[in-house]
Design a protein around this nucleic acid. Sequence first.
DNA 1: AAGTTTCTTGCAACTTAGTTGCAAATACTG
DNA 2: CAGTATTTGCAACTAAGTTGCAAGAAACTT
Lengths: 138, 138
Amino acid sequence: MQDKAAELLHSAKLRQTEPRLAILRALLKADTPLTQEQIADQTGPDAPNKTTIYRTLTQLVEKNLVHQAYLDDRTAHFELAHHCSEHQCHPHFTCRQCRQTQCLTGIKSPLVQLPKGYTIERQQIHIDGICEKCQHRS
Amino acid sequence: MQDKAAELLHSAKLRQTEPRLAILRALLKADTPLTQEQIADQTGPDAPNKTTIYRTLTQLVEKNLVHQAYLDDRTAHFELAHHCSEHQCHPHFTCRQCRQTQCLTGIKSPLVQLPKGYTIERQQIHIDGICEKCQHRS
DNA sequence: AAGTTTCTTGCAACTTAGTTGCAAATACTG
DNA sequence: CAGTATTTGCAACTAAGTTGCAAGAAACTT
């Protein structure tokens, strides 16, 4: 249990490398979805190269350990899948003013009923509005 | 009632110009959210310049006539807001195989209960999976 | 209707997020 | 510990969208 990051790599049958461990630790520590740039910042002065970060994230997404989402802009955000249930990710909230995105973990909504013949992989809910802090600031 | 596009421009207090009418007509005809490129294609040989398309869409989004969403990739998609209710847009479905996105108009889901102090502007639901056609193809 | 003002357009150059090819470096296997 | 397969970092590239600016077009004013 000491190193959850190593454990995750093991379960995904990926080699243990410094860049991958650093990326997973950043995601484990975060409570919001992170961009490549935020991950690089989190991993300190000798952060992995951005190509490595993107490639690692792609592998983790393929292994279904990480979810990728396009929230309020054209920058991909990544987060560990461990707070999501099989077909549903927790909702995300983005403030129109401060542009911060947060996870509404614990909240769930019924799955939408799809038309006949369709199968669901994942339902995502994204809400935008004004967060509490910005409400008070104005 | 002949020209819904002109009507929309009027209601938004925007000048009547050919590029704007063409863009609105493309959106009116579409039954899925469109990208800038798709709008350009729809508007024929002398389509407006892409800068014009983006600027027009931005204005229409500000006037709340058009909704902008980042669905499955980092390309913005635009659609008229007329099938959405005040705080909720109809769900969208993207097929993982053919990459087509469609609107599930008519379907609605309860609004997620936000934490105290938060206000909602819009709730969007995005589902991905396999569409009927792709199901049959495999 | 002509002149004036203000808004709108198109172009070219730029920015930003993400991708690709490739050679050097590193993890695992026997 | 040597050998192989995978991973990494770099530099160059691509694609989506933005910006500045001069020319063109709507609408407003006589």
